[in-house]
Amino acid sequence: MTYKNLIVNSENYITTIIINRPKKLNALNQETIKELHEAFKAADKDKATKVIVVTGSGEKAFVAGADISEFADFTVEEGTHLAANGQNILFDFVENLATPVIAAVNGFALGGGLELAMACHFRVASDNAKMGLPEVSLGVIPGYGGTQRLTQLVGKGRAMEMIMTAGMIDANKALGYGLVNHVVPQDELLELCNTIAAKIIKNSSVAISGAIRAVNANFKEGENGYQTEITEFGNCFGTEDFQEGTTAFLEKRKAAFPGR
């Protein structure tokens, strides 16, 4: 598929999705959100993709926010639909993908950009990254899951401060908060993401998908994460990956997981 605002590359079981609106600092407009949905959906269905990395083009920004010009004149109803639709087709969609998603945060990740990074399964940042949710400075609040995921990742007090002050934190503070897993020089960012992805690829994609569902269940209202874990654990016993993994262990060789 051809995209207007994305560059998508696949190699060595890794699909890299690059948000490519450099003149807008890769800001998320509705067209880009729809394209991201399609790109993530296609990568998730691709048997040759075992890890997805998402990043922004250029050196200045991962995603510097949403495209404010699109919704500056919205009504209450239109604003509500904007948030609900965005969460449904992109942010919740990414969080619940069966394929692991790594956010390579280069430069600014603000507003919708930080919300996209937080929807990914984990984050790696360049040392020049700046992160924040500045929405209250515009008279609005984060609407793409930011109030929920930031609190889950950094705790209530820190999330409240970041949201209320509308300020940015640098990469090292984000690392200290647990918002990102690693900080590296910008020219090493994708290299580290690919190194981590290579480690993931060696393992059972079926088991990883089950682990994603089990971890996410802890944060879903009305769902018992422990019970989800029990169910997903049991399901593993019916997979070819389990048979291969246990057989390889007993035979003292590396497993060659079929992904089934």
Rank of each mutant, 00 (worst) to 15 (best):
A98E: 00
T99I: 14
T99G: 09
P100C: 14
P100G: 04
P100Y: 05
P100R: 00
V101M: 09
V101E: 01
V101G: 02
I102S: 01
I102G: 01
I102D: 00
I102F: 08
A104T: 04
A104N: 11
A104K: 05
V105W: 07
V105E: 07
N106D: 14
N106S: 13
G107Y: 03
F108H: 04
F108D: 04
F108P: 02
F108V: 06
A109P: 01
L110F: 08
G111E: 01
G113I: 12
L114H: 00
L114D: 00
L114F: 12
E115Q: 06
E115P: 04
E115M: 15
E115C: 11
E115F: 10
L116D: 00
L116E: 00
A117C: 11
A117F: 10
A117N: 02
M118D: 03
A119S: 11
A119C: 14
C120P: 04
H121N: 12
H121P: 10
H121Q: 12
H121A: 15
H121F: 11
F122M: 08
F122E: 06
V124Y: 08
V124Q: 10
A125T: 05
A125D: 04
D127H: 12
N128I: 12
A129V: 02
A129S: 15
K130M: 14
L133Y: 01
L133A: 07
L133P: 03
V136S: 07
V136N: 07
V136D: 00
S137Q: 10
S137N: 11
S137F: 15
S137W: 14
L138W: 09
L138I: 06
L138R: 08
G139D: 15
G139K: 14
I141W: 06
I141T: 02
P142I: 00
G143S: 05
Y144W: 13
Y144L: 15
Y144T: 03
G145I: 13
G146D: 02
Q148T: 06
Q148V: 03
R149G: 13
R149C: 12
T151N: 06
Q152H: 13
V154M: 08
V154C: 04
V154K: 00
G155Q: 06
G155H: 04
K156N: 10
K156S: 12
K156H: 11
K156C: 09
G157Q: 15
G157A: 15
G157D: 14
G157Y: 07
G157N: 14
E161C: 09
E161L: 13
I163W: 01
I163C: 05
I163V: 10
I163R: 00
M164H: 08
I169V: 05
I169K: 01
D170H: 10
A171M: 09
